[in-house]
């Protein structure tokens, strides 16, 4: 799988580190509701299909970015701004 780094262009997946679901919103600071925090930390949407996620070009320019990828096919939709 090749991943399009916004700075370095298409590079092999082995140069990158995965960072998880990029659509998760961290609960507001001070939220006391444990259920909300539990869901934020432990529950995953895990869709079979389009997914927006974080990647870091850790063995390259070290830039973090958001990527659109289809989890059913590994088809890359491109960098999401």
């Amino acid at each position: 799988m090749m991943i399009p780094c916004p700075h370095c262009g298409d590079r092999d997946v082995s140069e990158f580190r995965y960072g998880g679901d990029a659509t998760k919103q961290r609960p507001k600071h001070g939220t006391g509701d444990l259920r909300t925090w539990h869901d934020h930390v432990f529950v995953f949407e895990n869709p079979k299909g389009p997914h927006t996620e974080y990647w870091q070009h850790v063995l390259g320019c070290r830039r973090w970015f958001k990527l659109a990828r289809n989890t059913a096919t590994n088809e890359i939709g491109g960098v999401v701004s």
């Binding site: 997946v13 082995s14 995965y18 995953f44 895990n46 079979k48 989890t71 096919t73 590994n74």
Partner: peptide, 16 residues
């Protein structure tokens, strides 16, 4: 391999 996927096709770097 280290990222969530439903494809039953692995990445080369893991084979290596």
């Amino acid at each position: 391999d280290g990222f969530n996927t439903y494809t039953q096709r692995g990445q080369f770097n893991r084979i290596q």
